[in-house]
Simulated scan of single mutants.
Amino acid sequence: MKIPSRLSYRRSLSPSHGVFTFLNAQEEKIPLPYQEIKIVGQKESAAEAFDKNMDIRKISSWKTLAEGNPQFIEYCHVPYDAKRLLCNFSLTVSANTLKAELCNDDDVAKTIKEFLTVYKKRNGFVYLSERYLRQILSGAWLWRNQDNLSTQITIKTNTNRKVVAKNVHQLRFEQGWEAKLPDWSELVSDFAKALVDPMSYLICEIEAEIIPATCQEVYPSQAFTEKNDNRESSRIFQKTRINGQLSPVIGCYKIGAGISIIDDWFKDAVHPIRVGRYGVEKSTSSSLRTPDTGTDFFTLLTKIESITEALYKDKQLSNEANFIAANLIKGGLFQPGDKK
């Protein structure tokens, strides 16, 4: 299949910001505060003494390395009297893979639709739903905030499901624990149905209830802004207003990234990575799905007819089919273009 000049899909998973609150000794729910503090760090970067080739810089006195490095930063921690830390977000699940948001080639639209139809018959959307829900219930979307004394995660849906997972700060390291939760299979069924049936969209209300250590640091999402002067914080949090008070959040895109760390469908996979066109591994600044290997999304999309045929014949899911379906669920612009 040749990718047309216009091809895009709307995302099927739409998370909100994750809002932090805490419960004090009186069980009152209060927006999580933050503060701007000035710290005096050390000059420890390589650039202080070396150039980009790691040659020693010509500096008049090495005493400058002992000078302080003052910075303004925004800092957030659990208040001393907090008994629980809460983080809440919502997730809307929609059947946006059924039809392209934009496609100027009817044959391509039919080809992708046929793939998705067969993928559905092979219970592919059920499989992906299990993977996404495990990420939610394991607290992957909390990122560094997963490390605490205890975490309980609750999912409530507009279909009257309620699934509660306790001690996920420990269970997340085990396999298959989520399948033992009451109403797990029903939740998976609702999630999968929402991905393929426009009349069955799903809204999930998710809450993480954390027992923190004393004054434990909290890690909201950072906002990347231009630094205008020395008085502006060098680290700024994303925020929202709760009862008129600014409070830091985990951004919706960071939550979405945590939910989509399910791609282990490539050769020699050690652990899952975030679903993406080129299989980017941020920790190593590398791509695990490069075009020269033929495992990137765009290359596989051009082979979607043969992948669909394999689904017909083998009657089981393939790594390539899972990867394509997950990217269609992620949505975005898929058409070719010239990078200038």
Rank of each mutant, 00 (worst) to 15 (best):
E130S: 04
F89S: 02
Y132V: 04
D105W: 02
T240D: 05
S12W: 07
F297D: 02
E209M: 09
D107C: 11
T111L: 02
D105P: 04
E281N: 14
K193D: 14
K58L: 07
P220G: 05
F334H: 00
F20H: 03
R289M: 05
P31L: 00
I324K: 01
E207Y: 05
A140I: 03
R231Y: 14
R277H: 13
Y127G: 00
S129I: 06
L65M: 14
A269N: 08
I307P: 02
F224C: 09
K113A: 12
S283L: 10
N96S: 03
M1E: 06
T225E: 13
A257N: 12
V164E: 08
K315D: 09
A95T: 04
Y219H: 13
L133F: 04
N167V: 04
L195K: 04
D55T: 06
D51G: 11
S90N: 07
S283I: 00
I324R: 10
T295N: 08
L317T: 06
F266W: 08
N230I: 12
G18N: 01
S94Q: 11
A321I: 05
Y312H: 14
S90E: 15
S233W: 02
L202N: 01
P198T: 15
T111V: 13
A223W: 02
Y253K: 10
F334M: 07
N104Q: 09
E186T: 14
D147L: 10
P33D: 11
K227G: 05
L149F: 08
V78G: 03
D105T: 03
A100D: 02
I30L: 10
E320D: 12
D147G: 02
K113D: 09
G279E: 01
K166L: 11
Y278W: 06
S247K: 02
L171C: 04
V78N: 01
Y80H: 12
L32D: 01
I155L: 03
I236Q: 08
Q222K: 09
